[in-house]
């Protein structure tokens, strides 16, 4: 049982604030992904959980125990590093056994655990090799096996797949998901890759400028972004945003189209819609086609709407040409509204 609670954790490096008052609770056996662009503080937060970094303020709890004064080795965690950190002077066997030897487990138990995790990660034939004789993907497997062999309460992963090529990444992603689910550990996984985050996570914590903007299930984060940043960061292509002016109470004018919306005191808010949530038809947002990108299952069309960039995902059977004037009708249930000042969803 290892629930992780991060309570009011902040981190300052000199005059720079890397984390502002972060609060996050991760349930036992949950797979939590910290997602954000580089420099958003996600790795710093992970390193604070690991104990490799000391928070400037706040508390860290793992499994009901306060750990922020404990060294990493007493926190019941294991970690997979971005560059794997597979020790070059030790064989694969000794790398996986490293933590077990530090715990002074009997040789029999060490062998049992190394062999079991090596088998799990399909590297049992590499046990006698050194890191210099392994490919990147194999080193990755060793790093994961070394973490699993500890049978930890918590596994922390710092962009573990970012150094692999695309095909290998896809394969490892699926494998990691299976292995970690079976190991029943709580996982915190840092990545800047939204596809990785969506496919692995039970919950995603989207981070931006040292804050957690939204922590929710992948579908929730995608469908109901809590802030403009989340909508613009998640989704490929990202959400479209258009200015909305007040037409009447609860009704807004967007590019000449009047749409029902939230009641607000503001005169202007922002309208947002995902590219796949519009349909070309008789009525809708007036758009002039600028670029057409056929992607196979569908066609990505980049248009001008009121002088701004607007992307639409249309069926691949749609016949459009550059310069065409389209009417793009947003699906009413998929429209989202943002306050332009707070950038929060309304």
């Amino acid at each position: 049982m290892a629930e992780i609670a991060i309570k009011g954790v902040a981190k300052r490096f000199g005059g720079f604030t890397a984390l502002h008052q972060v609060d996050l609770t991760i349930a036992d056996q949950e797979f939590m992904v910290l997602l954000g662009a580089s420099g958003c503080g996600k790795t710093t937060l992970l390193r604070i959980v690991a104990g490799l970094e000391t928070p400037s303020q706040g508390e860290m709890w793992i499994g009901g125990r306060r750990v922020d004064h404990l060294p990493p080795r007493d926190r019941g965690i294991a970690m997979v590093f971005q560059n794997y950190a597979v020790f070059p002077h030790l064989t694969v066997f000794e790398n996986i056994a490293f933590g077990l030897r530090m715990k002074k487990l009997p040789q029999q138990e060490v062998e049992r655990r190394v062999n079991r995790t090596a088998e799990l990660m399909h590297i049992e034939q590499l046990l006698k090799r050194y890191s210099g004789q392994l490919s990147g993907g194999q080193r990755q497997r060793v790093a994961v096996a070394r973490a699993l062999a500890m049978e930890p309460d918590v596994i922390l992963m710092d962009e573990p797949l970012s150094n692999l090529d695309a095909l290998l990444r896809l394969e490892m992603r699926a494998e990691l998901k299976g292995v970690l689910a079976a190991s029943k550990t709580t996982t915190i996984y840092v990545t800047h890759d939204q596809v990785e985050a969506m496919s692995l996570a039970d919950r995603i914590a989207v981070m931006h400028q040292g804050r957690i903007v939204q922590a929710a299930s992948p579908v929730e984060v995608y469908r109901n972004p809590a802030a403009r940043f989340v909508g613009s960061f998640i989704g490929n292509p990202p959400m479209n945003f258009l200015p909305a002016a007040k037409a009447a109470n609860g009704s807004w004018s967007v590019a000449g189209l009047t749409l029902p919306g939230p009641k607000s005191d503001r005169q202007a808010i922002e309208f947002a819609i995902r590219p796949e949530d519009v349909e070309a038809g008789e009525a809708g947002l007036p758009a002039i086609v600028r670029v057409i990108e056929p992607l196979g299952p569908h066609t990505l069309v980049t248009c001008d709407v009121e002088g701004g960039l607007f992307r639409a995902v249309l069926e691949s059977s749609a016949t459009v040409a550059v310069g065409d004037r389209l009417r793009l009708a947003p699906k009413p249930e998929r429209i989202r509204w943002f306050d332009p000042e707070t950038t929060h969803a309304i």
Partner: peptide, 28 residues
């Protein structure tokens, strides 16, 4: 690389063990 020391730290090596098991061999 600093990651080796951090990995050793996370996997339970005390400062002395890190010196003997990681720094010295890699410093050869």
């Amino acid at each position: 690389p600093r990651e080796y020391h951090e990995a050793a730290e996370v996997f339970g090596a005390s400062p002395w063990k890190r010196f003997v098991r990681i720094t010295l061999p890699l410093l050869r």
